[in-house]
Design a protein around this nucleic acid. Structure first.
Length: 400
RNA sequence: GCGUCGGUGGCAGAGUGGUCAAUUGCAACAGGCUGUAAACCUGUCGGAUUUAUCCUACACAAGUUCGAAUCUUGUCCGGCGCA
């Protein structure tokens, strides 16, 4: 029996809750949890150079995307380059997402302004919405194709329209080529507007894909030695489905778990809780695509170990930064006219490089004049903010 | 001085008798962004408002017309050409 490449140890538990601090051991180093995973979809954290992560952000882990790297530059190129770490000069633990989220974002959600978060109505009255119909017809209406069947997903590239197909096995194979420390089983992220029947159908299918992902992973001995595999819990907003999903996946031989899919803002916590009550304690849990600072607080309390979210870099690129308030956090839009002559630090309480050296007025000027340095500096700040905020949550657990 | 072309909302620039408070772009102002289709998207952008409508506006003035940013005349200003 070879030692698994990715293992987890709990360092301390928060009494009375599911929360814990721990360490994920990977071939490229340890991840002290809770930890925020910086998102670099295409093998680059947008607007940052790889060295900036270590020098200015301090993140311990980064995440790239199978779908994007498969389309561009191609998994073969990355394999030939010696893997993601060498190719991107990422000298830290890495994760690749399976491409399952793109089934949602490029499928049902395409052009609809739908996010994985449901807003307002969360009952099944929306079940007749066309959004829950994954059909070729609907896909053609917006010029994109994303058709799901039992074996996998057929889709067209958002880059050039070319047709491709992902199956569980194919996603794993591509992730082997890319070579991240942690890879994720191919799953289907459903729309929050999909009805329960569809959520269940998609969840069951994701479970079958999970089983096949494990088999595919075990067939590659080289990969098995250096890459850990996570399964993804689905079930949408339905607690019973979430529990079923957690139980099903917990019985499978995964190195860790992702909690994915759609939520509504109100019941995010409940969904996480019922899942983490079931998932094995000795395996790491990653909350996929979450979140905002307060979401992370809740996720940590409910037993999640790692988090990734595009928000810090996405909002940064358009002039919005996180700022600490007396009772929490807020986003401030530097494009607002009131910051044109505001020579205070971007965030007075922040000790990041950006806040030590620049003013709101300067950043506002960069954004108004569309200078790319604005996106860079704001991204540095936001990532530092969220990464170090999560680190502090760990410290609080250790001190408690 | 003569000739000629032109003067449209913060800017650029459409429109050339009614469907025009005036296409579009930029700027401005605000909102949004949660496993990145995203250096993006949405809304507002003359004033008042019960949002129906009313008022003021396409250099200025006078006129033609039921009706003018659009036609006529004059004035002012600008580009170009010739003196």
């Amino acid at each position: 029996m070879i030692k698994p490449p990715v293992t987890f140890e709990v360092v301390k538990r928060i009494s009375g809750t599911l929360g814990r601090a721990g360490i994920i051991h990977t071939p490229h180093g340890d991840i002290e949890t809770p930890a925020f995973v910086v998102v670099g979809t295409k093998g680059t954290v947008k607007s940052l150079k790889p060295e900036d992560m270590a020098e200015y952000v301090g993140n311990q882990v980064a995440l790239a995307n199978t779908y994007h790297l498969f389309l561009q530059p191609g998994a073969d190129v990355i394999k030939e380059a010696g893997g993601l770490h060498k190719f991107s000069n990422w000298d830290l633990p890495t994760i690749t997402d399976s491409g399952g989220f793109q089934v949602f974002s490029l499928g049902a959600a395409f052009g609809k302004g739908v996010t994985k978060f449901a807003k307002g109505e969360t009952d099944d009255k929306t079940e007749k919405s066309e959004l829950n119909v994954y059909s070729k017809k609907l896909a053609e209406e917006h010029g994109k194709l994303c058709v799901i069947d039992e074996e996998g997903v057929t889709f067209t590239s958002h880059i050039d329209g070319s047709m491709h197909r992902f199956t569980a096995e194919r996603s794993i194979e591509i992730q082997h080529d890319i070579g991240a420390d942690i890879i994720i089983a191919f799953d289907e992220c459903t729309s929050p507007t999909a009805d329960k029947a569809y959520q269940e159908e998609a969840m069951d299918r994701t479970h079958r894909w999970a089983k096949r992902s494990i088999l595919a992973h075990k067939q590659n001995f080289e990969a098995l030695k250096k890459q850990g595999l996570y399964g993804v819990v689905q079930g949408g907003r339905h607690l019973d489905l979430r529990q079923t999903s957690a139980r099903t996946l917990a019985d499978m031989d995964f190195d860790g778990f992702g909690i994915g899919g759609s939520f509504s803002k109100e019941d995010l916590g409940e969904a996480i809780q019922v899942v983490n009550e079931i998932l094995p304690e000795d395996k790491p849990r990653h909350l996929l695509g979450i979140g905002e600072p307060m979401d992370i607080v809740e996720g940590v309390r409910l037993g999640c170990d790692t988090f990734d979210c595009v928000a810090p870099t996405r909002i940064a690129r358009t002039g919005t930064i996180y700022e600490r308030t007396n009772d929490g956090h807020k986003r401030i839009n530097l494009m607002n006219s009131k910051y044109r002559r505001d020579f205070s630090k971007p965030d007075e309480s922040c000790d990041c490089y950006v806040c030590q050296n620049y003013t709101k007025a300067y950043l506002a000027h960069l954004f108004h004049s569309r200078e790319m340095l604005g996106a860079h500096l704001a991204s540095l700040h936001n990532l530092y903010y969220i990464v170090n905020f999560t680190k502090r949550l760990r410290e609080e657990i250790l001190l408690a």
